[in-house]
């Protein structure tokens, strides 16, 4: 087991390094930081632009491979370089990682818990009204792209503010109201009000996926012998389902949870951008438009690391939860 784990870890590290390098090379080749200076008035002298770009390790006159080596050397020392405006990328991203993490964690927890509950309830009464309803809703949700869902959520929130609450309850735009200074509780409430709509947007899609997944897993488990044994020894249907059925069916869901967590780091980008949250994904989109090679490369690095950590965590979680894997 330890040997397997070590090999797996080594493979993941190599893969992450290659993926991050590839992302840097792609970004450095496709983005053009020099274009940022083209539209300036007065036009800066070319020598000054060159010097500025060279100082940021963005000069396209330096060979690509040389720039890559400088960048990689910095990353190995924990330095992600500086953005096009000259501020260190690392500090900016550290602050943004917190924002993204908050949104993703809450969305993922809401999405998976509600999804698992819905899926389990649907499976317990297969072809009942709830099963049909949740299947239909999940089908519909899976066909709605996030950009549409987020906009519909904003429209719905605005409508609810105007017609249901009569005041602004659901807030859109940023993670908190700018310049609000009203003590701890009011500040927390304000953050909560901003949190609702993005979390709903992020979790609805996840609920659809998790509920379908959980339903099918539950249906597989429901026909198993050990569940009949549990019933035969006198457990009620509900207790047998929850204690023996749900717990077993949760194992693959837990590994899926870890996997989704890794991909959501960038997957939440659309939600962040539309709701104006200053997270990693939002930064990625704006960095592409400002030709910010170092920021793009740093976020790619984090994204590749997150995916690989998540898949590793998924494997470990599976081994920890499923006794059959441990024995084998």
């Amino acid at each position: 087991m330890a040997g397997f784990l070590a090999r797996r870890l080594l493979g993941s590290v190599v893969l992450a390094a290659v993926a991050a390098s590839l992302a840097y090379l792609l970004a450095a080749a496709a983005l053009d930081p020099r274009a940022n200076y083209a539209g300036r008035t007065p036009q800066p002298p070319p020598a000054a632009v060159d010097a500025q770009l060279a100082a940021l390790n963005l000069n396209d006159r330096t060979p690509l491979f040389e720039r890559y080596l400088t960048w990689a050397g910095g990353v190995l020392r924990g330095d992600f370089g500086r953005s096009v405006t000259g501020s260190p990328v690392g500090d900016d991203l550290r602050r943004r990682a917190g924002v993204t993490l908050r949104l993703v964690l809450l969305g993922l927890v809401c999405g998976s818990v509600l999804g698992v509950a819905a899926g389990a309830a649907a499976a317990a009464r297969q072809y009942g009204w709830f099963d049909r309803l949740s299947a239909g809703l999940a089908y519909l949700l899976l066909a709605i792209p996030v950009v549409v869902l987020a906009n519909v959520a904003i429209l719905g929130g605005t409508w609810a503010n105007d017609h249901l609450f009569g005041r602004r309850v659901l807030l859109v735009g940023g993670e908190r109201s700018a310049g609000l200074d009203a003590g701890l509780w009011a500040g927390l409430l304000d953050r909560l009000q901003h949190l609702i709509l993005p979390t709903v947007t992020l979790s609805l899609g996840l609920i659809a996926v998790f509920s379908r997944y959980q339903r099918n897993l539950m249906l597989d488990v429901l026909g198993a012998d050990y569940l009949r044994t549990a019933r035969a020894k006198g457990l009620s249907r509900r207790r047998a389902l929850v204690r023996h059925g749900l717990r077993t069916a949760l194992i693959p869901v837990a590994t899926y949870f870890a996997f989704v967590f890794g991909t959501l780091l960038t997957g939440a980008a659309f939600t962040e951008k539309i709701f104006g949250w200053h997270g990693l994904g939002e930064r990625l989109i704006s960095a592409v438009f400002t030709n910010d090679v170092n920021t793009v490369a740093a976020i790619s690095c984090l994204a590749a690391l997150a995916v690989l950590c998540a898949s590793l965590a998924a494997d470990l979680l599976h081994a920890a939860l499923d006794p059959r894997v441990r024995a084998g």
């Binding site: 893969l15 992450a16 792609l26 983005l31 960038t266 990625l284 790619s300 994204a303």
Partner: peptide
């Protein structure tokens, strides 16, 4: 390992 969205955005 590389999210598709990321590479498409870069390119």
């Amino acid at each position: 390992a590389l999210p598709a969205f990321l590479v498409l955005a870069i390119m």
